[in-house]
């Protein structure tokens, strides 16, 4: 029982991070039909900024807001520099553009910093645990769950309750009609990127707290997991992205716990294989397809 609860908490923590990224991927896909393979770059850039600040002796109290801010700015900047120009291009072009952005950023860090990873101090409490009702939890897990819940609730609030969120959802559903209602296309896309950046930034905070590492490809695996989670939930469906993220996290933790130790390192590989196989049987993702859409 204890073990199950621990794993559940662990899985929710991990899944929450993926959900944050997946939600951002889903948002951007919704407004401009782009799967953003450069979504991990927000984490990468934040990682190097943290590394720089940590070198200068900044504490995590400063790092946390900086990371989030960096992610938001990176996200908006990437839209402005690259995606704006291919907005009406084919899917193929947009996908390769995002892939190109990922590459230029990664290679720039190799060029100007180093190909090898840089480490900075993780916060002291990261390995500490607490006991609740006789079950030991890692503090960081609880913090992640708390923070992701708050951010997801915040994101849902923005999307559901504010008129900007409504505008984003309107644009995601029908971009032309949104324009007809006076919504400015540039603004709504920028807002989606900013919100996606914010969510990725929060995920980045915990990712960096856990790893304490800045590397040119730091954002790659989180990006991929986020994109897969969004796809599992049915691309473009925002609740689906969250569910997909949580599910992916839970599966990952279960695999880590129950796989024999000697193939522990294979977890990511197994997950990717599982996802690839999943789509043979559920080509539309795990969620039920919505109401019939005309072709």
């Amino acid at each position: 029982m204890t073990e199950v609860v621990q794993q559940l908490v662990d899985g929710l923590g991990r899944g929450g991070e993926y959900a944050l990224i997946a939600l951002g991927v889903g948002l951007i896909f919704g407004v401009m039909h782009l799967v953003n393979f450069a979504h991990g770059e927000m984490i990468t850039v934040s990682a190097y900024v943290s590394y720089g600040l940590a070198l200068a002796g900044a504490s995590w109290w400063i790092l946390v807001p900086t990371i989030v801010l960096t992610a938001v700015l990176t996200s908006v900047l990437v839209e402005f520099v690259a995606f704006r120009w291919v907005r009406s291009s084919s899917d193929f072009t947009m996908l390769l553009t995002s892939f190109g952005v990922h590459f230029v950023v990664q290679a720039a860090f190799v060029m100007f910093v180093s190909a090898s990873s840089r480490h900075f101090d993780r916060p002291g409490w990261i390995t500490s645990t607490v006991s609740l009702a006789g079950i030991r939890f890692e503090v960081v897990d609880l913090a992640i769950i708390a923070a992701t819940s708050v951010s997801l609730i915040f994101a849902v609030w923005v999307l559901q309750r504010t008129v900007y969120g409504m505008a984003i959802r309107a644009a995601a559903e029908d971009f032309d009609t949104a324009q007809l209602l006076g919504i400015r296309p540039n603004q709504v896309i920028r807002a989606a990127f900013a919100l996606a950046g914010l969510l990725a930034g929060i995920a980045a905070v915990f990712f960096l707290m856990r790893t304490g590492r800045a590397a040119p490809s730091a954002g790659l695996i989180p990006m991929l997991k986020g994109v897969l989670a969004a796809l599992i939930g049915g691309l473009g469906r925002l609740q689906g992205a969250v569910i997909g993220g949580l599910l992916l996290g839970l599966v990952e933790i279960l695999l880590v716990s129950y796989l024999p130790d000697d193939i522990d390192g294979m977890v990511n590989g197994i997950i990717f294989v599982l996802v690839a196989v999943l789509f043979i049987f559920r080509p539309s993702g795990i969620l039920k397809v919505g109401p019939a859409q005309r072709p």
Binding site: F29, V35, D91, L228, L231, L235, F279, P283
Partner: peptide, 9 residues
């Protein structure tokens, strides 16, 4: 789900 889904896989 369209070519994009195929690409992600």
């Amino acid at each position: 789900r369209g070519d994009i889904a195929a690409t992600v896989i």
